[in-house]
């Protein structure tokens, strides 16, 4: 498994943009067949999407490192320890050699500036929502491609996890930023573990010959958790309660 850093840059195609519009409308509370989207919101969404097309490039840096010791508190890698009991439980269930795939991705800072400069609260809200949805969707696309790639090499892949979610504290960002020179894609970490630009995401996924449990939600009784994740595809469904 390659351990060097890889940097990718992507522009968004028409199909992505169409899905993005649909996704943002839903996140704003205008699901198809429910409330009509007000004209002002539709126009602001047009502006936000146009700004995304004009001013953003999805940039990602990733690296795969071997997993060392796994104990009850977390997973050790040469970039540092991933302090998550849940991830440790997933890692212990894996079969064969285990790897941690680290990723940081961003839309860059220019789009944020355009959104922040909008006059009304509504416009700023729509721009913010469009940016958040865009970075998450772009990461989903990348993850799907990546997953296909590792499957073709007889590797399985867990869902991606981010510091600040589940039982992995936000301070865990330091491990990702040790693993990656995220400055290469223009992302930095503040002393409070906040990524700048804000429309950036970071994540780690576990890889192994067999990954029988892909989601920590399997181990968790918190049924009302807003971040609870279901199965991404049929073969994983049986693994998520």
């Amino acid at each position: 498994m390659m351990q060097e850093e890889t940097v990718l840059s992507r522009e968004f195609d028409g199909s992505f943009i169409r899905k993005l519009r649909r996704g943002v409308r839903e996140k704003l509370g205008y699901s198809v067949g429910e409330r009509a989207v007000p004209e002002e919101i539709e126009k602001t969404l047009d502006d936000a999407v146009a700004a995304i097309e004009k001013y953003t490039v999805f940039r990602v840096i990733y690296r795969v490192l071997p997993v060392g010791k796994i104990d009850e508190r977390g997973i050790h890698t040469k970039a540092g320890m991933i302090k998550s009991v849940m991830l440790s439980r997933i890692a212990r269930q894996c079969k064969g050699k285990r790897f941690a795939a680290f990723m940081v991705a961003t839309l860059g800072g220019e789009y944020e500036g355009i959104g922040d400069a909008r006059e009304s609260l509504t416009e700023r809200f729509v721009f913010d929502m469009a940016g958040s949805e865009c970075i998450e969707m772009a990461a989903d696309v990348l993850e799907a491609e990546w997953k296909k790639g590792v499957k073709s090499r007889d590797f399985a892949y867990s869902l991606r996890f981010s510091p600040g979610y589940c039982d992995w504290p936000l301070e865990g960002q330091a491990v990702l930023f040790n693993a990656l020179d995220a400055g290469r894609i223009g992302v930095r970490l503040t002393p409070h573990s906040v990524m700048i630009p804000k429309k950036s995401i970071s994540a780690v996924a576990l890889m192994a010959e067999e990954v029988p449990v892909v989601s920590p939600c399997v181990f968790c009784q918190k049924g009302d958790c807003p971040w609870r994740r279901g199965a991404p595809d049929k073969e994983d469904k049986k693994l998520v309660r």
Partner: peptide, 8 residues
Amino acid sequence: ASIPDFLL
């Protein structure tokens, strides 16, 4: 109503 409705 949705949040954007309120913000408008």
